[in-house]
Computed example of a mutant assay.
Amino acid sequence: MSESIAQASHIVVNVANLLATVYGMRALGINGQMAKGEDGCDYSPLFSLGDPGETLYEAATYLQAAGRNVAKAYRPTRK
């Protein structure tokens, strides 16, 4: 039970980081597939930024997996 809850927690943290990173990069005006440096070339330390719709779909998929882990941990019991 605790392993499923820990996995769900780990997934939710990763999704929150993913969405916060995408939001922050968009807020800074990084709108392309790859961030650009001062010289206009790709700035390799930053990861490639995917389509926002794909990112949301990916986040929803991960959250669905987290929900399955929580459901696995909390099975209804009979008294």
Results as ranks from 00 to 15, higher is better:
Met1Gly: 15
Met1Ala: 13
Met1Phe: 11
Ser2Tyr: 04
Ser2Cys: 01
Ser2Arg: 08
Glu3Phe: 02
Glu3Cys: 06
Ser4Gly: 01
Ile5Val: 15
Ile5Gly: 01
Ile5Asn: 03
Ala6Leu: 12
Ala6Asp: 15
Ala6Pro: 05
Gln7Leu: 09
Gln7Ser: 14
Gln7Thr: 08
Gln7Met: 02
Ala8Thr: 09
Ala8Met: 07
Ala8Val: 02
Ala8Gly: 10
Ala8Asn: 04
Ser9Asp: 12
His10Leu: 11
Ile11Gly: 04
Val12Trp: 05
Val12Thr: 14
Val12Lys: 15
Val13Ile: 13
Asn14Ile: 01
Asn14Asp: 13
Val15Met: 02
Ala16Phe: 02
Asn17Met: 12
Asn17Val: 05
Asn17Glu: 14
Leu18Phe: 09
Leu18Gln: 11
Leu19Val: 10
Ala20Asp: 14
Ala20Val: 04
Thr21Ser: 13
Thr21Trp: 14
Thr21Cys: 04
Gly24Pro: 00
Gly24Asp: 07
Gly24Ser: 11
Gly24Asn: 11
Met25Phe: 07
Met25Thr: 05
Arg26Leu: 10
Arg26His: 11
Arg26Tyr: 11
Ala27His: 03
Gly29Arg: 01
Ile30Gln: 04
Ile30Trp: 06
Asn31Ser: 06
Gly32Thr: 07
Gly32Trp: 00
Gln33Phe: 08
Gln33Asn: 09
Met34Glu: 09
Met34Ala: 15
Ala35Asp: 00
Ala35Ile: 00
Lys36Met: 10
Lys36Cys: 02
Gly37Pro: 03
Gly37Tyr: 03
Glu38Val: 07
Glu38Pro: 13
Gly40Trp: 10
Gly40Asn: 05
Gly40Arg: 06
Tyr43Leu: 06
Tyr43Ile: 06
Tyr43Gly: 06
Ser44His: 06
Ser44Lys: 04
Ser44Asp: 11
Ser44Arg: 08
Pro45Tyr: 09
Pro45Gln: 05
Leu46Met: 14
Leu46Ala: 11
Leu46Tyr: 10
Leu46Cys: 04
Gly50Lys: 07
Asp51Val: 03
Asp51Lys: 14
Pro52Glu: 08
Gly53Met: 04
Gly53Ser: 12
Gly53Asn: 12
Gly53His: 08
Thr55Pro: 01
Thr55Gly: 01
Thr55Ser: 13
Leu56Cys: 10
Leu56His: 09
Ala59Glu: 07
Thr61Lys: 06
Tyr62Leu: 13
Tyr62Ala: 15
Tyr62Ile: 00
Tyr62Arg: 10
Tyr62Phe: 13
Leu63Val: 14
Ala65Val: 03
Ala65Lys: 12
Ala66Asn: 05
Ala66Trp: 00
Arg68His: 12
Arg68Glu: 15
Arg68Lys: 12
Val70Leu: 15
Val70Asp: 03
Ala71Asn: 13
Lys72Leu: 10
Lys72Gly: 09
Lys72Phe: 02
Ala73Arg: 00
Ala73Ile: 01
Tyr74Gly: 00
Arg75Tyr: 06
Pro76Phe: 04
Thr77Asp: 09
Thr77Ile: 13
